[in-house]
Design a protein around this nucleic acid. Structure first.
Lengths: 185, 185
DNA sequence: GAATATACGGAGTACGCACTCCGTTTACTA
DNA sequence: TAGTAAACGGAGTGCGTACTCCGTATATTC
């Protein structure tokens, strides 16, 4: 069931462009506009994603996969404390996109956990190992669970959104979270 | 320019019901459904809010006003440290609604700061006094600014969303933030 | 370099939904 | 309580947009 070369190319291109366009202009953009931006006919777009909703989910899942990759890489670091800090900064910085996408899905009445599915599990697993080693090295308080960390990540990127381009403010906010992660309960 | 009694009643009722319906089912609900839920004809709804977008903004602004009230009350407390903690817990708990609304607006391509306008200023002012007294009493690190606090509030309520109904998890997350607010830079 | 399965493009369709219009009703005023 | 300005209700309209269909093009296989 391998896709033809052009089909695979187009699918990737649609996902890529759709992410940009959706984040820039919101879910209200027409599928036609996305297709045009991707340099593809509407027919093609709908063959790959039979529904606008499925397209948005596809974009979201792709984003999650990339996040999972980052998390896996971070989990392999020898200094888990620094890794978690770096990951937080990174995720926070790039998080606006994910925020916007997640917001779209929920505001469109889609259940996130269902939509994310397998990709969500990947992220969870990678963050799990990262968290556990950070806790064993004493860098992070022991009462935290993976779900808490995920929530805090989402929260941090949300908080960062409000700081806009102000680098100092971003750093203050990340600082607050990092200190909170460290402090004993 | 006083509204007739029934008009005022209807306007309030629409705002009230719209908030509930919008949060429950997303921006995609039809105006007709909102009108029906409010027990009002579509004509009436559109006389009060000439545009669906203006309706959503109206709901959002109303929410902000209530938040500003809470903040003002908290700022008047004799123990600013405790007040800020309580406010964080409260705002976080009720924040889901605001999150959902804000998400709707942005995903609909509306500029939040513009939409919030005056109400936003109210919140900012109230939180400003709260923050300053908390800092003078030594309960909160001194390098934080009002904008940071607002961001952290939004972030916290986002983080709490992921904890769902798990009260212990909610408390752990709030704990992280509170510790972070306290710790010296 | 045929042959064929696979993918493409985009005009066309159906439908839902935001918004209008106006005849009817209801709150105010004196 | 009559008169009137203000508000209401909801059938109707037009437009935007998600999705279909099928004739054409292009990758793949031998």
């Amino acid at each position: 069931m391998t896709l033809r070369a052009d089909a695979r190319r187009n699918r990737a291109r649609i996902l890529d462009v759709a992410e940009k366009v959706l984040v820039e202009r919101g879910t209200t953009v027409s599928t036609e506009e996305i297709a045009r931006a991707a340099g593809v006919g509407i027919g093609t777009l709908f063959r790959h994603f039979p529904t606008k909703e499925e397209l948005i989910q596809g974009v979201f899942v792709a984003r999650l996969h990339r996040l999972a990759d980052d998390a896996t890489r971070a989990a392999a670091s020898p200094d888990p404390g620094a890794a978690i800090a770096g990951f937080l900064r990174e995720a926070a910085a790039q998080g606006e996109v994910k925020n916007a996408l997640a917001a779209m899905l929920t505001s469109a009445g889609v259940d996130l956990h269902e939509a994310a599915g397998e990709a969500q599990q990947e992220v969870r697993r990678a963050l799990g190992t990262l968290l556990r080693s950070a806790q064993q090295s004493g860098a992070v308080r022991r009462d935290l669970e993976v779900a808490d960390l995920i929530g805090l990540l989402a929260g941090t990127s949300k908080a960062i959104e409000y700081a806009g381009q102000d680098a100092a403010a971003r750093e203050r906010i990340v600082g607050v979270i990092l200190d909170g992660l460290r402090a004993p309960s």
